[in-house]
Computed example of a mutant assay.
Amino acid sequence: MQAGRMRYRLTFEKPVRIRDESGEVIVDQWIEAFKVWGAVEPLTGREYMASAEFRPGVSTRIRVRWRDDLDTSLRVVHQDGTVYDIVAVLPVQGLHKEAQVMCGSGVVTEGGQP
């Protein structure tokens, strides 16, 4: 992993879940879980086609240092305000030093389900 590529400040947010009158779980708001430095890489056409075979909607790969609390319940907010929905978290070569966070775009940013 090259630290120089990790030049973007990324905020990972987790949902605060509440129940409505019928008992259904809804997302009321998102709160900051942690901030990290990472690399944001839009997928090329070939990579997109390969990832779409098993991950529909994947459009961006985010590389960060491995953390045990990375999972698909979180979302990523780029320092420019772009919001990404996490589709999968993959350890690079199974070493748990770097994670590839496969993301989709077009995420709802205010209230409601992402």
Rank of each mutant, 00 (worst) to 15 (best):
residue 2 Q to W: 05
residue 2 Q to A: 06
residue 3 A to S: 13
residue 4 G to E: 11
residue 7 R to P: 05
residue 8 Y to R: 04
residue 9 R to L: 05
residue 13 E to S: 13
residue 13 E to P: 08
residue 14 K to Y: 13
residue 15 P to G: 05
residue 16 V to D: 05
residue 18 I to L: 13
residue 19 R to V: 02
residue 20 D to W: 05
residue 20 D to A: 04
residue 20 D to V: 00
residue 21 E to S: 05
residue 21 E to D: 08
residue 22 S to C: 15
residue 23 G to N: 09
residue 25 V to E: 14
residue 26 I to P: 13
residue 26 I to D: 09
residue 27 V to G: 07
residue 28 D to T: 11
residue 28 D to S: 15
residue 30 W to F: 10
residue 30 W to M: 05
residue 32 E to N: 10
residue 32 E to A: 06
residue 32 E to W: 07
residue 33 A to N: 07
residue 36 V to N: 11
residue 37 W to T: 15
residue 37 W to Y: 10
residue 39 A to Y: 10
residue 40 V to M: 05
residue 40 V to T: 08
residue 41 E to G: 03
residue 44 T to C: 02
residue 46 R to H: 11
residue 47 E to S: 04
residue 49 M to N: 06
residue 49 M to A: 07
residue 49 M to T: 14
residue 50 A to E: 14
residue 53 E to Q: 11
residue 55 R to A: 05
residue 56 P to S: 02
residue 56 P to F: 00
residue 56 P to T: 06
residue 58 V to G: 11
residue 58 V to W: 07
residue 59 S to R: 13
residue 60 T to G: 11
residue 60 T to R: 09
residue 62 I to P: 03
residue 62 I to Q: 06
residue 64 V to C: 04
residue 64 V to N: 01
residue 65 R to P: 03
residue 67 R to K: 04
residue 68 D to W: 02
residue 69 D to V: 04
residue 71 D to N: 10
residue 71 D to V: 12
residue 72 T to F: 10
residue 73 S to W: 09
residue 76 V to Q: 01
residue 76 V to W: 00
residue 78 H to I: 01
residue 78 H to S: 01
residue 78 H to E: 04
residue 79 Q to L: 10
residue 79 Q to C: 15
residue 79 Q to M: 11
residue 80 D to P: 00
residue 80 D to Q: 05
residue 82 T to I: 00
residue 83 V to G: 00
residue 84 Y to K: 00
residue 84 Y to M: 04
residue 88 A to D: 02
residue 88 A to V: 01
residue 90 L to I: 09
residue 92 V to A: 07
residue 95 L to A: 10
residue 95 L to I: 15
residue 97 K to D: 07
residue 98 E to H: 04
residue 100 Q to E: 12
residue 101 V to H: 02
residue 101 V to R: 02
residue 102 M to N: 00
residue 102 M to E: 01
